[in-house]
Structure formats: structure tokens, C-alpha cells
Computed example of a mutant assay.
Amino acid sequence: MSGDAESYVRFQSATRHQRGHFTGVFGLVNGLAQEGKLTAEQEMFRRTNNDWYDSAYPDPSTVDPAVYDHEVNPCAVAWFKVTAAHLIERVPGYLEILEAHGVECRTVRSSDPGRVVYEDEFQVVVVPYEAEGVGVA
């Protein structure tokens, strides 16, 4: 995969998930919601914006059900294309929720984040190069 410097951006945890990947911003906030940790206001933000994202761009797993299959694509993660500014501009609200709960989230930029297993106008899903050949733990 090639691209201009910093063609892709991802918002992810600072530590690896048990399966070896860094959980993305949506997974982190959704995890807090599943644990019942969000305030009513935070939950309203999450639900409203998750619904908006669901209608604003494709869910790769509905296009290719195996895209996030750990055996097929170990540690596969999604990255925004930097050209998808209208999608990225909503992320700070999620970051504020994470900060309020003491959950560290990093912004990572790359021109080549890994082997592309899915791509659309807004995003790519990649298997990071360091995960190639990694099986189920």
C-alpha cells in the first residue's frame, strides 16, 4: 500500500488488547458503555454519534464478514483516510469521554499502516505488518 505522508489516521488505546491489537476509539467508548460507566449525557452522545457513523459510511464487516476474523486477518484494524475530515471531526467527543474516564487514547498517523484487507472511500482495514503470520493466541 502506498500513499502520501500521513494518509491515514487512527485513534487507539495505548496498550494492546488480549488479541494483540490496539482497540480503536469506538471500541473503547463502547466498552465503557457495556460496563455501564457512561453518564446519561455521555451515553446520549455515544448513541447519537454511533448512529450517525453507522449511516455515514460503510461497516466493513457487512461488506466482508471475514474482514475482522482473527484467523483470516489477525489484528485487523480500521484507519480513517485523512480525506474523510467529516468523519474525523466527530472523534474529539469520543476522546473527551475517554479522558473523563481515565482511558488513554493515542492518535497515530501513517502513510502505510499495514496490508490492506478492505478499502472504501473513507477508510482502510489493515493487518499491521507486525501481525502478519500471527494466529489465534
Rank of each mutant, 00 (worst) to 15 (best):
T107S: 11
V108F: 02
P74G: 10
A84P: 04
P92C: 02
V82P: 14
C75S: 07
G102W: 06
H70M: 08
G114C: 04
V77G: 06
A66F: 06
G93V: 11
A56N: 10
W79D: 04
D59K: 14
D51L: 11
P92V: 01
R109A: 01
E41H: 06
P74A: 11
G102L: 04
T62D: 13
I88Y: 07
P74Y: 07
V77A: 10
H86M: 12
W79T: 08
A66S: 14
V103R: 02
C75Y: 00
N49M: 13
V117A: 05
W52G: 08
W52C: 00
A76G: 06
V72Y: 01
S55V: 10
E71H: 02
D64T: 04
K81C: 07
H86L: 08
T107E: 15
V63N: 05
D59S: 11
Y68S: 00
R106I: 02
C75E: 15
Y57G: 11
A76D: 00
E41L: 11
D51G: 05
V91N: 03
R106H: 15
V82N: 14
C75L: 00
D59C: 02
D112W: 01
A76S: 12
D51P: 03
A56P: 08
E96A: 13
P92N: 08
P74R: 02
S61N: 10
L95R: 11
S55H: 09
G102T: 10
M44S: 14
R47Y: 00
L87E: 01
E99V: 01
R47D: 08
V108K: 07
H86A: 13
L87A: 09
D64S: 09
V108M: 09
F80N: 15
E71D: 15
W52L: 10
Q42G: 04
A56S: 15
H86Q: 08
D51R: 09
P58F: 02
L87R: 11
Y57F: 14
A100F: 00
L87K: 06
W52E: 07
G93H: 06
N73I: 09
G93W: 09
A56Q: 12
S111N: 13
H101G: 08
A78Q: 02
F45C: 05
E71N: 11
H86F: 13
V117F: 05
H101Y: 07
A56I: 12
V91L: 09
V117R: 01
D64Q: 08
I97K: 04
A66Q: 14
Y68N: 02
E71I: 10
V103Y: 02
E104A: 12
A78M: 14
K81E: 11
S61R: 15
N49K: 06
I97S: 07
E43P: 02
I97C: 06
V117G: 00
N50G: 07
E96T: 15
H86V: 12
C75W: 02
T48I: 10
P92E: 09
E71V: 15
T107G: 01
F45Q: 06
S110G: 05
H70C: 00
N49P: 03
A78D: 03
L98T: 01
S55R: 10
E99K: 12
P113L: 07
V77R: 13
T83E: 15
L87P: 07
N50W: 06
E41T: 13
A78L: 13
P58G: 04
L95V: 04
N73V: 04
V67F: 04
E99A: 13
A66H: 06
H101V: 08
D69G: 01
